[in-house]
């Protein structure tokens, strides 16, 4: 039960963080994908099944809150949760280089599948160079967020 409420609280916090970030830095096109970072954290630190389920839930939430193609975030986040879930208990997730590499790969993978799906539905956005900076943003914010998640979940005794 503690795990369930902690997950709900974390997701709500991340949605709020997303809204606040958008509100404050409305002029920038760059925005870290907070829920993607959380799914990666769950995949690396908590468990494979949890990553798939939370990927599905967080994706649904993103799809509801974004007026884009419905289901695209659900599919992509769930896939990331599933793929990176295989790394659970197979690598040392506490290593910085593992975390950074995972963040980078997840971000690139997310963008790649996301744009493929959108273009397959003829909804692809016009290409801009800021897309190359998104993984960088994800790495910086993701690394900090991972540290916070690890500290918080350890504090609660979930990991």
């Amino acid at each position: 039960m503690k795990k369930f409420f902690t997950v709900i609280f974390t997701i709500c916090s991340l949605v709020l963080l997303d809204i606040i970030y958008t509100k404050i830095f409305f002029y920038t096109l760059l925005k870290p994908n907070f829920l993607l970072i959380y799914i990666l954290f769950v995949a690396l630190f908590i468990g494979h099944t949890d990553a798939v389920i939370l990927g599905f839930i967080c994706g649904m939430l993103l799809d509801i809150l974004n007026l884009k193609l419905f289901g695209v975030n659900t599919f992509v986040l769930m896939t990331i949760g599933y793929i990176f879930g295989f790394l659970n208990k197979r690598i040392d997730e506490t290593l910085i280089k593992v975390q950074i590499l995972s963040l980078f790969l997840s971000s690139v993978f997310f963008l790649f599948i996301y744009y493929i799906i959108l273009s397959s539905f003829s909804l692809s956005k016009s290409f801009s160079y800021h897309i190359f900076f998104i993984p960088l943003f994800d790495i910086i914010f993701g690394y900090l967020l991972l540290k916070i998640f690890v500290w918080y979940y350890k504090l609660l005794g979930i990991i």
């Binding site: 494979h48 099944t49 990553a51 798939v52 389920i53 990927g55 599905f56 994706g59 799809d63 193609l69 419905f70 289901g71 695209v72 659900t74 599919f75 769930m78 896939t79 599933y82 879930g85 799906i117 539905f121």
Partner: peptide, 19 residues
């Protein structure tokens, strides 16, 4: 996880097609 993934994938693809 694999079973869940496939079930959820079917659901999400349904969402995608039922826009």
């Amino acid at each position: 996880p694999t079973v869940l993934y496939f079930l959820a994938s079917i659901l999400s693809i349904t969402f995608l097609n039922s826009e």
